[in-house]
Every structure is written in C-alpha cells, then in structure tokens.
Amino acid sequence: MRVLANVIGYLLVGSAILAVGLWVDNYYYFQLLTFIGINTLLAVGLNMLMGYAGQISLGHAAFYGLGAYTTGILGVHLGWPPLVTLPCALLVSGLVAWLVGRPTLKLHGYYLGMGTLGVGMIVHVLFREWSSLTGGPSGLPGIPTLSLGPLEIPGGRPYMFVVWGVVLVSFAMCQRLVHSRVGRALRAIHFSEQAAAAVGVDTARAKLQVFVFAGVLAGLAGFLYAHMVTFVSPSSFGFLVSVRIVAMVVIGGMASIWGSLFGASLLTMLPEWLHVFSEYEVLVYGLILVVVMIFFPQGLTRGMLDLYERARRGKTGSGS
C-alpha cells in the first residue's frame, strides 16, 4: 500500500513536470518550477533532521550558501567546470555540517536552535566580509551556466528537468533512509533520546549522520541555485532564508517527505499569487500561514489526510 502510494506520487509529480515542459512555453513558469524544486530539496533535507530526528536547525541557509558560494568561487576565480565543482560544493557543505554537528548536536531544544542560529550568522558574516573571495555584500557575478562536459544546460526548460530529476532521486533516497535501520533509530530519538540509547541506538552517531545528510542536500540545492541565477550574494542566504525553510517544513508537515514538496511549493508560489493584493500582500501572506497553523497544526499534508478520513467516516457513519 505504502509502496503503491509512493509510486503514484512519483508518477504524478513526474508527469506534471513533463506536461509543463511539453505544453507550456514560458520561461517564467520554468524558472518558478525550478525555484520550487530547489526549495523542495532544502525542505526535504531539513525535514529529515526536524521531522524525523526531532533536531531543530535555524541555520540551514548556511549550508545552502556554502554550496552556492563554493561552486561560484571555484567557477569564477579558478574557472573550474561545474562537473568538478559539484563534488567540491557537496564536500564543503558536508564537511562543515560534520564539524558543526559534532559539538552542537550535544545541545537540546532551544539551545540547539541557538547553536545552529549562531552558525548561520557566522557563515553569513563570512560571505559578507571576505570580499576578495566572495565579492562582499554586493555579490559574486559571472558564475558559468551548468554544463556536463560538452553538454550545456541553460536556464529554463532543460534546467527545470535536471532540477526535478534531482528532486525525485533525493525523494527516493530519503524514503529508503526513513524505512531503514537509521530511519527507525531517528524516529526513536525523536520520541525519546534516552530510551533510544537504552535499546542500543548510537544516538550521537545517528544524529550526526542525518545532520550531514541534510547539509549535503542543502549544498546540492545551493549548487543548483548558483548555476541557475549565475549570481550569488549574501542576502540570499541570511537568517530569514533559514526561517523560510523551517516554515516550509512545518507548513508542509513534519516527518512527511511529500509534505516538504507541498510546503516548498506553497511558500514559493504564495508571493506570486498574492501580488494582486499589492500593499496588503504581506498581511494576507501572514494570515494564510496563521490559519494553516491553527487548523492544521501538523502541517497541510497531515491535515488534508485527516479531513479526508473524517469525511469518509462521516459518510459511512450516516449510511449505517
């Protein structure tokens, strides 16, 4: 049943993207879908950490930025092709996640939030102040477009296909992880870290592993962002971006991989839809988030399923 539902999910998302790619001819929609894909990568990584392992991170934009800046700096200053900078970007964000994760994951609750918040700020300051390398506050222009060997992948339709291919593969990876031994260990930690440790789960190791995994996924998202926009600046990786990623996870639904897709899509598209409200846009945006949180405290995905369940039960109840 679970496998079937997932296969249907992949088919639906895949065919939706394919349909847009084949029938729509507007660069803007391709780009919007690309941004949704990149945000989904960020959200699904953080969801593994927050939703499954119960560890909060308020500095996720740091790893996103590290991926983007690593490939940007290597591409602009050294002229390395994206195929070579991709492993570097993943390595740097993974390595920093490992270094940061070792001490900070010993913290709990608010303290972990504060710790990761600090990391996010430090990395942001580095982007801003290390001008010779990062171009400083006004940013780093001239990043090459994505190319795999001789094959050029310009922005727009081809790029959208690449990003969504990556998203679906990462979904599959996350799903394997969730239903593996590590995934079960993570959920045990979420429930009670002491109990998990008591039954023989190496909690420190499991937490570090998922933190590094989330960091690498964010680095990958950063890599895709940098080669899409061909420009990076510190303001794209600040504290508010970290908060937005957390909001995507919470709104979409914690501990739900498809929820990350919903959350990322909703939060990326809302500002575009709400444009008609002009001055009141921010107000309506806030209102929608508040309403979702009040009535679907477990996120949209869970909330929708609950509504569906209730409707079905109501129907059978009145029938008998």
Binding site: Q31, F35, V229
Partner: peptide
C-alpha cells in the same frame, strides 16, 4: 531579495 528580483524580472519579461 535577489532571488525574488530574478523571478519577477522573468515574469515581467515573459508573462
């Protein structure tokens, strides 16, 4: 926000 600026620039250009 540079990301929003890019997104809206393409909306202006293509839509």
């Amino acid at each position: 926000d540079p990301t929003k600026a890019v997104s809206f620039a393409n909306k202006l250009i293509h839509s």
